[in-house]
Design a protein around this nucleic acid. Structure first.
Lengths: 350, 350
DNA sequence: CTGAAAGCGCTTACAG
DNA sequence: CTGAAAGCGCTTACAG
């Protein structure tokens, strides 16, 4: 007792007396039963008598008892929690995907532990270790490359898939999406099409770039190295602007640009303006991810619809499947649609 | 043994054999020492011999041992985790504030548990209970009204403060911010100024509205009920559009509008356009929170700089203070600056 | 229907 | 410097 009081004082010597949480033993004592019975009553075991059940609940209510999940987890050897690690929680895409995942996971009774890797492999690896240390039942991972050997729990990838084949994952249909964008630009008769890609190394960046190159080749167009630029690790707006500026300076400038994300597109738009170029008259511009308020931008930008939330939901659902014993291997791709506005050269009225 | 294997089989009968996590006992056995010594070695206790220390670390490494934090938490009676509850993780403001908080908390060694209340008092109360059940050491709360009696751990409010006085909290300087917006509009000689507020009931909505009314009165202008509109619970863009449309329809229409948030402002902008009104020529518009890509909107919108991240950081720092025994009571306000662009009537060149 | 006992995986006085 | 023992707060066979 003395020990406990002392350690409390060290940890939290403020006036706010962190009142001791009542334990199951307290409830049992108050209800005049054993801890075993109290536990069974609280867990609605059909075996306990009605009167007993009521007395226990009453005692628990009176004491403000909230069962200690840490103790329960240790005892039952299952934390009923899921870890989610994303490169950056404050990016529109991951914030939305995270929300989607959290919704389905919480509905299934899981606690969600969110960790941010800040796009660094080291921090991702650390986050994974922390999650394992907390004995999560499974992990949802948008990898930044910190995943080496599989941890001791099921993992489902999302958006940024593991390069190794055969791992479970959910991602946007990158290839088809780029195809939609490319075809639309071709419909406007463009032959000199530039590309502002994400940072090489993630499946999302790499797939979109590969799809772009495949489209160019399939269209019988020349593959010009100078027409392909890349954003920085954060796919930042600033790096999109830099890339856009480089494209704008080219002697034989592209007449249209595909940006691999919203921030990259907005950065490119800013660069084009800065270079005194009109969009879409001088250079057309289309974006992979639909920018926020895209229809109010000047000009309104043509882009692919967002299904961020859905990616998170599907990944969570897949993990739940695995956890309940339906391994359901392989990949799921979320289809995207083209939203035609004006930056592509259309008049924006459909 | 049989029991364990059986229960494992029920939980996860997939081929992915969830390998048993090695325990401290395993490490101790492998290193040829007792669990006590292994524990001390791993925790870098100065008391253990160098040779022993090395053998233990080697064994831990070889086994891929990751100490079970659940067991440690139970034993030490401290989870070293902090709960953060926000109305919606996918809203720009909270995503950024959350990230700020998470950064400082993780740096201090805490695990962050994020919960979303979806703006419902019931869900907020449930989230709070879950957090308590997980024995978090403290809570960061942007309340939606689900907080009745103080939980058994320290709470710091952020953005949406507790109406009760004297509680700890961090929020933007709502009053001063509205003052900045209002004064700027007055500088443009506007006398008929409308207000699209947030949903009444949260401190952020109420403070901004009160500040607006105080400014109107202080300026000697009439307080017209018809000039004040409110967004819905989510402060959604659609509700901002609705409010903007109502203002636009007024017989004696305001010549300027202050919107209490980015989404509300963008909604209002859309409504104004829909009504065939030019911004800022027919109606000027300024926004409290700086919209994403605000400078590329048509017209670029004048707004208050965002300090979302800072709000989260400061709230986290305050909680840390409390946890280490420096109660530091009261409120902190984060000052905002005006970013002048074109929607207010300026030419946008500063 | 209920209780005593064991144990989940750690940490930490207490002895040596 | 090291080990045996107790205990954190639960759950769950095992007996009655």
């Amino acid at each position: 007792m003395t020990t406990i009081a002392k350690s409390c004082a060290v940890v939290n010597p403020s006036r706010i007396e962190t009142q001791r949480h009542p334990t199951l033993a307290d409830v049992a004592a108050a209800a005049g039963v054993s801890a075993s019975t109290a536990s069974r009553a609280l867990r609605e075991s059909p075996v306990v008598g009605e009167g007993t059940r009521q007395r226990v609940f009453e005692a628990a209510r009176a004491l403000g008892f909230e069962p200690n999940r840490i103790a329960r987890s240790l005892r039952t050897r299952s934390s009923f929690s899921i870890g989610v690690v994303v490169p950056d929680v404050a990016t529109v895409f991951w914030a939305a995907a995270l929300k989607g995942a959290q919704d389905v996971l919480e509905r299934a009774g899981y606690l969600v532990l969110v960790m941010s890797s800040e796009r660094e492999p080291k921090r991702e690896a650390a986050a994974l270790r922390t999650l394992i240390a907390h004995r999560v039942d499974g992990i949802l991972l948008a990898t930044s490359g910190g995943y080496d050997q599989p941890p001791a729990v099921p993992v489902v990838f999302f958006d940024r898939l593991d390069p190794a084949a055969g791992t479970r994952g959910v991602a946007p249909a990158n290839r088809d999406g780029i195809g939609l964008l490319f075809d639309h630009l071709r419909g406007h008769r463009h032959t000199r099409i530039g590309f502002v890609g994400g940072h090489p190394g993630s499946s999302s960046a790499d797939e979109r770039l590969a799809a772009f190159e495949a489209e160019v080749t399939a269209a019988g167009l020349p593959l010009r190295a100078g027409y392909v630029r890349h954003g920085d690790a954060a796919w930042s707006e600033a790096s999109g602007e830099q890339a856009g500026a480089e494209l704008a300076e080219l002697a034989e400038r592209p007449t249209a640009i595909i940006a691999a994300s919203d921030a990259l597109a907005v950065g490119a738009l800013r660069a084009l303006r800065g270079a005194g170029l009109r969009v879409p008259e001088d250079v057309a511009l289309v974006s992979f991810d639909d920018p926020v308020f895209a229809d109010l931008l000047d000009p309104p930008v043509t882009a692919l619809s967002r299904h961020d939330r859905e990616v998170g939901e599907l990944a969570a659902a897949m993990l739940l499947e695995v956890l309940t014993g339906n391994p359901e291997p392989g990949e799921v791709r979320v289809p995207l649609e083209l939203i035609v506005r004006r930056s592509c050269g259309c008049d924006g009225r459909g």
